[in-house]
Amino acid sequence: MMSKIPQRSKSSQGLAYVKVGTGPSLVLIHGVGLRLEAWLNQLSELAQHFTVYAVDMPGHGGSELFPECHDISDYTDVIAGWIQNDIATPAVIVGHSMGSMIALNLAIRYPNECAGVVALNSVFRRSEEAKKAVLSRVAQIKQSITADNVTAPVKRWFDFPLRGEDIQNAQLCSEWLSKASLDGYRQAYEVFCFNDGPADEDLTSLTVPALFATGRGDPNSTAKMSEAMAELCPQGSVYIVEDARHMAPMTHADELNPIIIKFGQQCFDPKEEVSHDHA
């Protein structure tokens, strides 16, 4: 784990980000209510192979709120504009949870800016029961957004009772969520809940390599969802992390980081032979 996050830079658009490492560009996009510190367990290792840009989503961390962000494509346009202006080279886009929805939308709509995409713990075609649950949470947040219902997702993200490093991981997530901008959280969470994943035709026409990974125990971003998306993509692959839930990038970094590194290297050098188990 990187003990300290470098000082954030600010784009002309108002996005806050950090830049570490050297090599081809790789972008990290976190999920709803979190901040770029959610990639603490990735930054040091990925920076040994890539120039890593970890960004605060609009309305999160040090990034300004973008009132015009009403759906995934709006968030994508903001991130894509930042990549075009501040990175100016194609990047592997790695997203977690809502960040994975943005990453996939970017790969679909901005292929010139994307060398490959990694979707971690992503959602695709929720069950009717899951749809009812997220719509109920949206209604609750619209009615009254409080620190308690902002931090409630932590109970779904980790196995309870907490043990070992998960105690600290859950505490960090609770801290980030409790300090999140309520307006930024409300705006992003509604977008997240009303998005059910990319259209099938967009996945079947995706022109860049795509890796889908999730935790076997994630009840909302299930293994079947990742497997279904990978199956649709011409260059799709899938990796399922056993004994992991929604925060797999944080809890199982030692397992996922080498997978992300090998995938990224293959995106920039197709001669690299890398396979991903359909675990």
Score class of each variant (00 low, 15 high):
29 I>L: 00
235 Q>S: 12
266 Q>T: 15
118 V>Q: 04
256 L>I: 12
197 G>T: 12
154 V>T: 15
188 A>Y: 11
195 N>M: 03
252 H>I: 09
190 E>K: 00
273 E>M: 05
72 I>C: 01
162 L>Q: 08
36 L>G: 03
138 V>P: 15
254 D>H: 09
22 T>C: 04
228 A>S: 07
253 A>M: 12
52 V>A: 03
97 S>Y: 06
20 V>F: 02
103 A>D: 04
22 T>Q: 00
77 D>P: 00
246 H>C: 12
267 C>S: 10
245 R>A: 13
170 A>Q: 00
114 C>A: 09
68 E>Y: 06
147 A>W: 02
3 S>G: 10
162 L>W: 01
141 I>F: 07
190 E>V: 01
247 M>F: 14
262 K>C: 06
223 A>V: 00
226 S>L: 04
263 F>A: 04
150 V>N: 02
232 L>Y: 11
155 K>M: 15
26 L>H: 00
247 M>W: 10
146 T>G: 02
15 L>Q: 08
83 I>A: 02
100 S>P: 15
183 D>T: 00
152 A>N: 15
111 P>H: 10
36 L>C: 11
6 P>V: 09
46 L>R: 03
45 E>I: 01
24 P>C: 11
37 E>H: 06
274 V>C: 03
146 T>Y: 12
23 G>C: 02
243 D>R: 14
64 E>Y: 03
123 V>T: 04
50 F>H: 03
204 T>W: 12
87 I>E: 02
157 W>Y: 12
49 H>N: 15
119 A>T: 09
244 A>S: 09
235 Q>H: 06
119 A>D: 05
191 V>D: 15
258 P>W: 01
234 P>F: 14
193 C>P: 02
242 E>K: 05
162 L>F: 05
269 D>G: 00
101 M>S: 11
109 R>K: 10
